[in-house]
Nucleic acid binder design. Sequence first.
DNA 1: GCTCGAACAGACAGGTCTGTCTAGTGTTGG
DNA 2: CCAACACTAGACAGACCTGTCTGTTCGAGC
Lengths: 193, 193
Amino acid sequence: MPAQTARPSARERLLAAADELFYREGVHVVGIDRVIEHAGVAKASLYNTFGSKDELIRAYLEGRHKAIEKRVTDGLAAYPTPREKILGVFDIQGARFQSPEYRGCPFISATAEAEPGAGSLAAADAYRAWVRGLFADLARQAGAADPEALAQQLQIAYDGVAVKVRLDRDPAADLAAGRALAAMLLDAALGPA
Amino acid sequence: MPAQTARPSARERLLAAADELFYREGVHVVGIDRVIEHAGVAKASLYNTFGSKDELIRAYLEGRHKAIEKRVTDGLAAYPTPREKILGVFDIQGARFQSPEYRGCPFISATAEAEPGAGSLAAADAYRAWVRGLFADLARQAGAADPEALAQQLQIAYDGVAVKVRLDRDPAADLAAGRALAAMLLDAALGPA
DNA sequence: GCTCGAACAGACAGGTCTGTCTAGTGTTGG
DNA sequence: CCAACACTAGACAGACCTGTCTGTTCGAGC
């Protein structure tokens, strides 16, 4: 039988629409009505599926988290050493930053004006813990004296590049600066390559 | 005659209220009505003075820019060498990041979901150009081979720390990591102190 | 055939948003 | 005294917001 090309479920269409609109324009700016119109879904379906806009935002960020995690994890397989893997994170993510559709880190943007209990904050916590853990694991494998401290510094560089690319709009130069910064960190922490 | 303690003008009261509310809760979340109520000013006065909410946001960010510029410039006078001044920027700003009222960089937050022509973007451009110029001048005075490139890297660290303190809520550790990152950059670019 | 659940369209409630407008008040300088 | 001016209070327009509700359609399993 031929491949089923069934219409995606309401949940999937909602997430796809939310991903596109929330990322491009912002979670505060885009209203529920625009999401359901773009998804071709009834409003009741959204509220049956997610319960609230806050939960839809959380699910949108969780999807971003999973996608980034997969992209980075898959991409890192091609890098042989822990040290190169760390720089690889900057290269893999940097490739996305070059796109004209890049609008900055979705977690930084979505949490910028979040109120205390918002779902976006929980999603950002989980994402940031993953990034930090990835850097710390790689730093440990690379033989860093203090892997946690190195991971914190790498995350500062990682966040800083995302902000800089969004606001200064010179991706090539900003990415080069970020990669050089990370390389310098590794030289200092592990000895020159 | 005794010092005049005249009531501040409507403009000043509006800016003070905007500064407090916009920074604490966010420029999208806080509406005009709350600003004028907090300022004790009529709505017509706001629109006579600023013309639009966008312009009020721009003026709020301009005030933040001036305040930071003054605080940093004044503070740097106490640091003897260009190299120490660069680290001094992190210390001076870092002191603010420790406050429980710290909500992250106001420019990063206000521009997070700004639409293309927004005043917040213009204000952020001006602010970021100043930061970059300050770092570049100091790097030049310190004898860096490529002051502009060093300034870009310092700005990545500067932005990264602001994001990390806001989202990871461990100011002391994050600031230490940021300062160490900056010191490492200087060691690499200028030779060890 | 029939039932039942999932999704549909869309009205509605109740509130908030920005921005405009009218009308009144108080102060200040000529 | 009075004209100019800055400000105040608050109604209003028109749009948009989240979230709820009613009723309909459609397809799949029994």
